[in-house]
């Protein structure tokens, strides 16, 4: 099963070659056709999104992303199937939040929630309520938002922060946080709900933390960070100390919410610049800066393209087209980047 280092090198070289070919200079827009392909590949009839990169499991994050894309594509039937499955299979905790992980063999095997999954689901419901003028979606969203606010929003060092899950992210006085769980546009939508002031503070805190959580030569945010009682941030123990698959979403969410300050996008543009915009490594160890041989996926490159534009680095990244067997996460990131770019007016 182990992929040899050499295979990987060949893989990234091939990627570089593909990127150098002309004809793919523009990121693919997210449209009806894109959604149909996405649904064919990842949406099962019962209404769950399959994480093809992870042995076919499903999780609250996937359901949230699927629901967001379904709303964006105007596919209400698919949206209802996704939401129905999510309610039946994941919202079994009794506190209004979703269990984060479901496996075909064992069902819910870990009842802990993942706050970003819950946020994505609630945000998708709010957007659906808007698009299809359906109060029931809004009510459901409000319930999730309320549950999140009461169980996951906590105050630390004068900041309002979001715990990544109900259980296991407090180490004494120190919190373990995930910068990529700051889904800024969702947070803004929650802040606009009645009694949503604390969500506004969460946004403010997110920007402060992203300014503090800059490590290593590229000044990148870690996938998992700590915040102690004095407000000092660190790279969390017990996780791979790296910038990678999680934190790549940081610039995506910032851009999607209309942030344009190059300061917040420069670290990602610097990383891309260092690797010539082609075989960007998927992860960077922090603070050391060792990069993996694994290349960033198409979806990650799509995020970088966005980040580079906002950092003022121009079109430094060429995003190759999605491969026929592109996995769930990469495909999702690519589509989300397109949605974010559309909302910023960068791309059609």
């Amino acid at each position: 099963m182990t992929v040899s280092r050499r295979d990987l090198l060949i893989g990234s070289a091939a990627l570089g070659l593909a990127a150098a070919l002309p004809g793919n200079l523009r990121a693919a827009p997210f449209d009806g056709a894109a959604w149909r392909r996405y649904a064919e590949r990842f949406l099962l009839p019962e209404g769950r999104i399959v994480d093809t990169g992870n042995k076919g499991i499903s999780h609250s994050e996937g359901q949230g992303y699927g629901m967001l894309l379904a709303v964006a594509a105007g596919d209400r039937a698919a949206f209802d199937r996704l939401w129905g499955w999510t309610q039946r299979m994941l919202m079994v905790r009794g506190d209004g939040l979703a269990a984060w992980r479901w496996t075909p063999d064992g069902g819910v095997t870990d009842r802990n929630n993942a706050s970003d999954g819950d946020m994505l689901i609630a945000w998708a419901l709010l957007r659906a309520a808007e698009v299809w003028q359906t109060e029931a979606y809004r009510t459901a969203a409000a319930g999730i938002v309320k549950a999140l606010a009461s169980g996951l929003l906590v105050e630390q060092a004068g900041l309002t922060v979001l715990l990544p899950g109900r259980d296991g992210f407090r180490k004494g006085e120190t919190l373990v946080l995930n910068p990529s769980y700051w889904i800024f546009p969702a947070i803004r939508a929650f802040a606009a709900l009645p009694g949503g002031e604390r969500w506004g503070k969460l946004s403010d805190a997110g920007l402060v933390l992203l300014s503090k959580a800059r490590f290593g030569g590229f000044q990148l945010p870690p996938d998992w960070m700590t915040l102690d009682a004095a407000g000092t941030v660190g790279i969390a123990d017990g996780f791979k100390k790296q910038y990678g698959y999680d934190a790549v979403r940081v610039p995506l969410y910032l851009a999607w919410d209309g942030y344009r300050d190059p300061y917040y996008f420069r670290p990602f543009a610097d990383l891309v610049a260092k690797f010539g915009g082609t075989a960007v490594p998927a992860t960077v160890s922090l603070p050391g800066g060792t990069t993996t041989q694994v290349a960033a996926s198409v979806g990650m490159l799509a995020v970088y393209r966005l980040a580079c534009r906002l950092a003022g680095a121009g079109d430094a990244v060429t995003v190759p087209p999605l491969a026929p067997d592109e996995d769930y996460y990469s495909t999702t990131l690519a589509h989300l980047s397109a949605l974010a770019a559309q909302s910023l007016g960068i791309d059609p």
Binding site: G11, G53, N54, T283, V294
Partner: peptide, 11 residues
């Protein structure tokens, strides 16, 4: 596949 979400979700 050199690129996979495995590591992420696994993490």
């Amino acid at each position: 596949s050199p690129i996979s979400g495995t590591a992420r979700i696994g993490r």
